[in-house]
């Protein structure tokens, strides 16, 4: 028996909007730790890892570890039917081939049940080793989204370089090239508007902008984004989900052929 009650139901709506374009089908794993997902995109270039900790749910019952295979587009369709202020409960019976999403309006005057068919998905979990990153950039998530969108109108790839001067996002394409430099800026009033750069070593890596733009679909989940870079490692683009966990996107860099 599984029953997870999330008062901020719109968090789950936002999570689905953030991953459904990158991943088609995925197993959601439910354990005493929380509700999680790890999945690769169809071309095995990017990986998404989601964790919603059990403590973040108002009620969390998970009698045994369960893995539920879901089509994320279908799940997103169902969650779109929940109101933004609705409480969402995920329910599944042991051995059942369906999952139920229950939506309750805040004043309990409307209760809806949406039952979705589960699917068998063969997927292996990848081990993500702890790593020391050469540079960690924390910046407003809307700013990062804007840069990725702007650069993708010029080129297909972005070079992210971190030096003492700041973090530089560069692209080049048929019509020309573009560089956006963000300097460390902690003097603003609100911490969520600041840019901080923790650099141990300068680093410069090239990534496909198509994936970066896809990651920025998670922008509504968090006002800030953390970009962790190390040469010879996938970049980690992390959006913290307040009081609940995180969504992390890993993207392998491009190299000279």
């Amino acid at each position: 028996m599984l029953e997870l009650r999330l008062v901020q139901g719109n968090l789950l709506k936002k999570v689905l909007e953030a991953v459904k374009d990158l991943v088609t089908d995925a197993n959601f794993d439910c354990s005493s730790t929380g509700f999680s997902l790890q999945a690769m995109d169809s071309s095995h270039v990017a990986l998404v890892a989601l964790l919603l900790r059990s403590e973040g749910f108002e009620h969390y019952r998970c009698d045994r570890n369960v893995s539920m295979g879901m089509n994320l587009n279908n799940m997103a369709k169902m969650l779109k039917c929940a109101g933004n202020d609705d409480i969402v409960t995920i329910k599944a019976d042991d051995g059942s081939d369906t999952v139920t999403f229950m939506f309750e309006s805040p004043n309990q005057d409307k209760i809806a049940d949406f039952e979705m068919k589960l699917m068998d998905i063969d997927s292996e979990h990848l081990g993500i080793p702890e790593a020391e990153y050469h540079a960690i950039v924390r910046m407003p998530s809307s700013e990062f989204a804007r840069i990725c969108k702007d650069l993708s109108s010029i080129g297909d790839t972005v070079v992210i370089s971190v030096t003492k001067e700041g973090v530089k996002f560069s692209t080049r394409g048929d019509i020309g090239n573009a560089n956006v430099v963000c300097r460390q800026n902690t003097t603003v009033d609100k911490p969520e508007e600041s840019t901080t750069i923790e650099m141990h070593e300068p680093v410069s890596l090239t990534f496909a902008l198509r994936y970066m733009n896809s990651f920025t679909k998670a922008t509504p989940l968090s006002s800030t984004v953390t970009i962790s870079l190390s040469s010879e490692l996938p970049v980690v683009v992390e959006y913290k989900i307040a009081e609940m966990g995180y969504i992390r996107f890993y993207l392998a860099p491009k190299i000279e052929d």
Partner: peptide, 14 residues
């Protein structure tokens, strides 16, 4: 010319 690396080059199955 640049080549896209797969994620499996960095992360192995558990």
């Amino acid at each position: 010319k640049q080549k896209q690396q797969p994620i499996s080059r960095f992360f192995a199955p558990k």
